[in-house]
Simulated scan of single mutants.
Amino acid sequence: MPLVNLIVTLVVVGVILWLINNYIPMDGTIKKILNVVVIIIVILWLLSAFGILGDISAVRVG
C-alpha cells in the first residue's frame, strides 16, 4: 500500500473523529470509549499494512 494512501486514510479518519467529537453531542465517557476504539482499530490496521501483524482477517474469535 503506497504511503500516500496511508496518510490520506489517517487524515480522513482523524477529521471524521474530530467532527464527531465536536459536533455530535455525547457524554464524555462515550466519546472517550469511541476515541480509544478508533485508535486501537487504526493501530491494528497500520500494523497489518506494514506487515508486522499479519492478516487480520485470519484471526478468529470464539
Rank of each mutant, 00 (worst) to 15 (best):
M26N: 09
D27W: 09
L6G: 01
N21C: 10
N21M: 12
V61S: 07
K31W: 06
L17D: 08
D55E: 12
V12A: 13
I52Q: 12
N21V: 02
K32W: 11
A58Y: 02
D55L: 07
I20T: 00
V4Q: 13
V13K: 01
W45Y: 07
P25K: 12
W18Y: 10
G14I: 03
G62V: 05
N22K: 09
G51Q: 05
N35H: 13
L6R: 05
L47W: 06
V11N: 00
V11T: 13
L44T: 11
V36H: 11
N21S: 15
G14D: 07
V42A: 08
V37R: 02
L53G: 00
T29W: 11
V13E: 03
L34N: 06
I33P: 07
I41K: 08
L3T: 14
T29C: 03
I16K: 00
M26A: 12
V8C: 09
L3F: 10
S57C: 06
V59Q: 03
I24S: 02
N21P: 00
I30R: 15
M26R: 14
V36T: 14
T9Q: 01
I52M: 10
L44G: 11
N21I: 08
V11Q: 03
V12G: 03
K32H: 06
G51E: 03
A49Y: 00
V8F: 08
P25V: 06
I16L: 07
P2Y: 01
L10P: 03
I7G: 02
V11M: 06
A58R: 09
L10Q: 09
S48Q: 05
L3Q: 11
K32T: 13
G14P: 02
V36G: 04
V59Y: 09
K31N: 15
L17I: 04
V12M: 03
S57F: 12
I56Y: 00
V59R: 04
P25M: 12
L19A: 10
V42L: 06
M26C: 11
I43N: 06
A58V: 04
W45L: 02
D27Y: 08
L6F: 01
